[in-house]
């Protein structure tokens, strides 16, 4: 008999807790609206993807956000020989920072953020040739 009471209390506790959780979730959704959806990168391009030293390559990322949030763009290189020259929202112009003796390659990662914790990342490979095509 005691065991049955204990089981019943436990079951009640579980049901009440579950109900509270659901209610909290509903309240959270009521307060914050729909859950944030992260931005989505649909394309990333480099023009040109192979460039001569002391010239410029432009990387452009195309992304959209299902919630219509404003997007911010950051760029991380895999190597230390790239310098940024300028940017315009979803694109950035890059050149080499230093003297280049031989062809080098690296990946540039693009990180697109919606300011609400949502992110998408993609990367593209680029190459640099010594100035003058040596």
């Amino acid at each position: 008999m005691t065991n049955r009471h204990a089981l019943a209390r436990l079951a009640t506790l579980i049901i009440v807790s579950a109900a509270l959780c659901v209610a909290c979730d509903v309240d959270l959704l009521l307060f914050t609206g729909a859950a944030n959806q992260p931005p989505v990168i649909s394309a990333i391009d480099a023009e040109p993807d192979t460039f001569y030293a002391e010239h410029v390559t432009r990387i452009t990322v195309t992304a959209s956000d299902p919630d219509g949030d404003n997007l911010t763009y950051e760029w991380d290189p895999n190597a230390s020989w790239l310098l940024p020259m300028s940017s315009a929202g979803n694109s950035i112009d890059l050149t080499n920072c230093c003297h280049i003796d031989a062809m080098q390659t690296t990946f540039v990662h693009s990180i697109v953020s919606d300011g609400r914790g949502g992110q998408d990342r993609d990367s593209i490979q680029i190459w640099v040739l010594p100035a003058g095509g040596r």
């Binding site: 911010t72 763009y73 950051e74 760029w75 991380d76 290189p77 230390s80 020989w81 790239l82 310098l83 940024p84 020259m85 300028s86 940017s87 950035i92 890059l94 920072c97």
Partner: peptide
Amino acid sequence: KRNYGFLLPEE
């Protein structure tokens, strides 16, 4: 540190 959102080289 970044310039134009681009992570600058170590130097």
